[in-house]
Amino acid sequence: MKTFTLMAGGTGGHLFPAQALGQELKRRGHAISLMTDRRTSRYLDVFPANRTYVIPSATPRLRNPIKAIEAGFTILRGMATARSTLKKLQPDAVIGFGGYPTFPPFLMASLMGIPGLLHEQNAVMGAANRALARFADGLALSFDDTRHADKFAIARTVTGNPVRDAVLAVADQPLPPIGEGMKLRLLVFGGSQGARFFSEVMPGAIEALPESIRSRLILTQQCREEDLERVTRAYAAAKVNVELATFFDDLPQRIAGSHLVIGRAGAGTIAELGVLGRPAILVPLPGSLDQDQSANAKVMEAAGGALVWRQDTISPQSLATELERLLPDSDRLTTMAARAATIGRADAVGALADFAEAIAEGAAAPSTPRSTEEGERS
Rank of each mutant, 00 (worst) to 15 (best):
331 D>P: 04
331 D>Y: 08
331 D>W: 04
333 L>W: 04
334 T>S: 13
334 T>F: 05
335 T>H: 11
335 T>G: 09
335 T>Y: 04
336 M>V: 09
336 M>L: 12
337 A>S: 13
338 A>G: 15
338 A>F: 02
338 A>K: 13
338 A>D: 09
339 R>M: 14
339 R>A: 09
339 R>H: 11
340 A>G: 11
340 A>S: 15
341 A>V: 07
341 A>Q: 12
342 T>R: 14
343 I>N: 00
344 G>W: 06
344 G>H: 08
345 R>A: 14
345 R>P: 04
346 A>E: 05
346 A>S: 13
346 A>D: 07
347 D>M: 05
347 D>T: 04
348 A>S: 06
349 V>D: 00
350 G>K: 03
351 A>L: 09
351 A>K: 08
352 L>I: 02
352 L>V: 01
353 A>W: 05
354 D>M: 07
354 D>G: 05
354 D>L: 10
355 F>N: 00
357 E>I: 11
358 A>Q: 15
358 A>S: 13
359 I>T: 11
360 A>Q: 00
361 E>R: 15
361 E>K: 14
362 G>H: 05
362 G>D: 06
363 A>C: 05
364 A>L: 11
364 A>F: 07
365 A>F: 01
366 P>M: 11
367 S>L: 06
367 S>R: 11
368 T>N: 12
369 P>G: 11
369 P>K: 10
372 T>V: 14
373 E>K: 06
373 E>A: 14
373 E>P: 00
374 E>F: 14
374 E>Y: 12
375 G>F: 04
376 E>V: 13
376 E>L: 14
377 R>F: 09
377 R>Y: 05
378 S>L: 15
378 S>D: 13
378 S>Y: 12
378 S>T: 14
